[in-house]
Each structure stands twice: as structure tokens, then as C-alpha cells.
Design a protein around this nucleic acid. Structure first.
Lengths: 251, 251
DNA sequence: GTTTTAAGATCGGGC
DNA sequence: GCCCGATGTTAAAAC
């Protein structure tokens, strides 16, 4: 770990391009007064102000202000990063697909850190949409008594379907699952699938059910209008025993 | 700016809860070996590994690994953050709406920084969807000769539309603008809106045009199927003179 | 590499 | 506060 307090631009550049700079998998943080120019998918300018700049080993660059989870400016992974002198330290971060350039210029540097992060762990996350589909696939009676899952599909000609089912009367049921509230867009999506499905399979009957813990008023109106159905589905989830959370005891 | 290299948990806690900790608008960065438990909208566990933890003045907490723009774990702005001792330093980050808890426990701390960021600047961004709608509103002939903009709307009963127009024959035209490629969802949305619009206004005729720089093959097929139209619209944009970018001279 | 969709999405605007 | 859609969305999976 290398740390420089209030380095001159030259000292900072030496650290970034010199010996410590040759470390392969390194992360860099700079606290300082900088301005940021960005040009690519859009274009932006951010005038001088104090920020935290983070450069990751994979080429990710982030300029963080004092608020919000999102960086003020950034470059995604795969960006080529260069450190140059231009009346002070400047960072040039460029990528090609799509062509995008970000340039950070420092008026002052308060602190510079260069360090490595060794991390063999992978996150274990549960409660994604796929987990809810899993649960419904195992026990479709949660949605409706007598429902049978015929296929769990990823892609069809007319789009993506979560569960392809038949109800107790043998009628085809297309099930769309959302982990949060159902918005009008989800209704449009299911409606479009159903229209295509009926057309393609020359079926007069084919039901569509949206499953989610919540639904907005507008989506509810749309669902009724379009002859679709909504089934409220709550869900709980547990991390596997091995990777047990320690939050039980957390107040 | 306060900086501690390899502090003991006690030293770290003192710094975080002590005098320097009382600074109002402060940002904190910690580099160290930590594990993270999260429970809320979903649930996750991340075992010990070296990461960069950032705590912002607004309650945002981010745990960054050595790759990717996105944090491994996080809490959004508005979170209440506490620093406690529990066989080492621990950070408890809790919010209420929705109820979510994140707990970070440090096995080792390599570096701790506490500092303030003074930033009066605001980002000046151009090239958003609204900018493209602006341009098309000013000169609808870009879309089609003889097109006139009747209204620029935000919300209607049956949804959100960008531009409400009439063509040279007086036929109603609903225009939907996207800044990137048109996806099937955008087609569904416009289709659904048009169906409602025709029904409500008892109009046999009403056209729908999607404007974007690009369109996917599937969306193109859908557009033809549904009798909608696609108009390729490229766009350039310039930052206002006052806030001129310095990227012109950047190689 | 393109396309499609989810995300613990986040964020901002409108009501 | 809920609801809705954009984001320089990012990221992953399928093709």
C-alpha cells in the first residue's frame, strides 16, 4: 500500500507511472479538486470541485461526489487509463466500443493511494426473480390450484417467457413473474406475448397471469382491460446453511 | 483529512466515532479485509476478502471489489450508519423504507481515511432523450415532411408519450423517441398506447412512429407486424459555450 | 459481438 | 409518499 498526502503533481505522476504503478492488479484512489470532461454516448462537463476518484484494476474509473450511490462521471470496465502531466495531474480514460473518452484534471491533490485487493470470495445472493420462478416451478399451485408447468423457457420467437403452463382444464397459461411491483410495461409485454402466441398457435384461449408481490393501480386497470390476470405472490428466501448470514443476531 | 495506516480496530473506531468523526459532511474510505451481510429486498452474504468501503455524507455505503463499476454490496442514500466494535470493527448500515440492513465486519484494516469534499459544481450533461425530443419538437420535418407537433406530453391516462403530432394529411401521429436502440418493449408500449388511443378517440387512423438511431431485428419485425413505423434519427449535441468542454484538444 | 432482460437497480419528476 | 419512465444505465445470459 502506497499513500501520499498532498503530493505535488509530479510526485503523484511518479507514483502512478513509476514502480508502484507497475503493480498489476492495483486499485487507485485520489481525493482532490478536479474537473471532468466526458464525450461518448452523451457529453458532459463537470467543473472543478473536490471528489473521490477511484481507478480499478479492470479499467473502471469512477468520480464520486459527496452524495448518491452513482458516480458523477465514470468509465466502465475495459477502459484504457493513462496518467499525464498537463499543468497538473490529468487522467485520460478512453475506450473504443462504444468510443468514449473521459478526462479528469486535478487542480489539487489531497491524497493518493495505490494498493492491491486480494479477494477470493464470491457473493451469494438470493431473492432474485429467478429464485421466485424456481419456487413457482416447484409448486405451481401457489399460483392456482391444478396448474401444471409444461416448460420453463428463456426465449421464444415473440420474446421471453418465465413459465409456460396448463390449467386444470388444459388451457395454456403464460406466467410472467416480477420480483417487485408490476408496472404497465410488464402488462404490455405479457399482452404482446399472448397476442402472438394465440395467433401462432391458432388458439382462441390462452390465459396470461402476472405474478408479483405488488401491482400499481394503472397496471391493474390495464390487466382487467386486456383480460389478463394478477396473482399476488409473496416470497421468503434463505441463504444456504453453509453460507449462513450472521444477521439473525443483528438488532 | 485524517489518515490511519493499518490501525487497530480500536484506533479505527476512535477515529470514526471521535473528534474527526463529528465532522458533519465527511466521507470515509476503508481498505481492508471484510465480510458483508445484507438483508432487505433480497438477501446476500459475501465472505471475507479485501475491498474498498466508501461511506458518503448522505448515508450511502458502497463495498467495492477490484472489478466492475457496480459495488459488490451497498446501501442507498438516507441510510443510518453506525460504527461498533465486535471482535474487530463493524459497520451497521440500516434504513427503514424499505427495511434493509447491511453489516460489514473487518478482519483487518489496511487504511482508513476521513475527509470532507467541497463541491459547488453541477454536472452539465447533454445527449439525453429529452435533448433529442427537444430537437425533434423544434424541427419535426426531421421525422417526416409536413409533420406538425400538436403537443409535447409527459403523462396521459393510458401512458407516457413523447410527441403528439399530425401529418400533412391531418392524421394523428404518436411519436416515441429512444436515445439508444429500439427494443421490443418500446414497440409494445407504443402499440398498447395506440390501441387505447384509437379506441378512446374512435379513430380508425392514427399512426405510430418510433425514432431512434438504431433498431434491433426483432423490434423491426414487430414494428412491421403491428403496422407501426421506424424513423432513424441521428443526433449530435454540443455543450453550451460557457461550459465548453476541453476535449477538442484531447487526442 | 448483438440482443434481450433483470437489477437489492438508482434517480428524478409528477401527482 | 407512490407511480412511472430514463439511465452515458450496468451486467449477465443466450444466440
Amino acid at each position: 500500500m502506497k499513500y501520499l498526502a498532498s503530493p505535488t503533481p509530479e510526485e503523484a505522476l511518479d507514483a502512478l507511472n513509476g514502480a508502484a504503478g507497475s503493480i498489476k492488479k492495483r486499485m487507485i484512489t485520489i481525493v482532490g479538486n478536479c474537473k471532468v470532461d466526458y464525450s461518448g454516448r452523451a457529453r458532459s462537463f463537470l467543473d472543478y470541485g473536490e471528489r473521490l476518484v477511484v481507478v480499478k484494476a479492470d479499467g473502471t474509473v469512477m468520480v464520486h461526489g459527496s452524495e448518491k450511490r452513482e458516480p458523477l462521471n465514470w468509465q466502465p470496465p475495459g477502459t484504457t487509463v493513462k496518467y499525464v502531466m498537463d499543468h497538473g495531474l490529468a487522467i485520460e480514460a478512453k475506450r473504443t466500443s462504444p468510443p468514449e473518452t473521459m478526462r479528469i484534471h486535478f487542480m489539487a491533490i489531497e491524497a493518493l493511494s495505490i494498493f492491491q485487493l486480494h479477494d477470493g470470495a464470491e457473493i451469494n445472493l438470493i431473492g432474485e426473480e429467478a429464485d421466485i420462478v424456481d419456487k413457482l416451478e416447484k409448486d405451481p399451485s401457489i399460483i392456482e390450484e391444478g396448474l401444471r408447468v409444461m416448460r420453463r423457457e428463456k426465449v421464444t420467437n415473440s420474446g421471453f417467457i418465465d413459465l409456460y403452463c396448463e390449467d386444470k382444464d388444459g388451457v395454456t397459461v403464460i406466467v410472467e413473474v416480477k420480483r417487485t411491483s408490476i408496472s404497465p410495461n410488464a402488462v404490455y409485454q405479457l399482452e404482446a406475448y399472448l397476442v402472438d402466441f394465440r395467433k401462432k398457435n391458432k388458439l382462441a384461449k390462452a390465459r396470461g397471469i402476472l405474478c408479483a408481490p405488488r401491482i400499481s393501480e394503472m397496471a391493474k386497470t390495464l390487466i382487467v382491460e386486456k383480460g389478463l390476470e394478477y396473482k399476488q405472490v409473496d416470497y421468503e428466501f434463505e441463504l444456504s446453511d453453509k453460507k449462513q448470514s450472521s444477521l439473525e443476531s443483528f438488532d
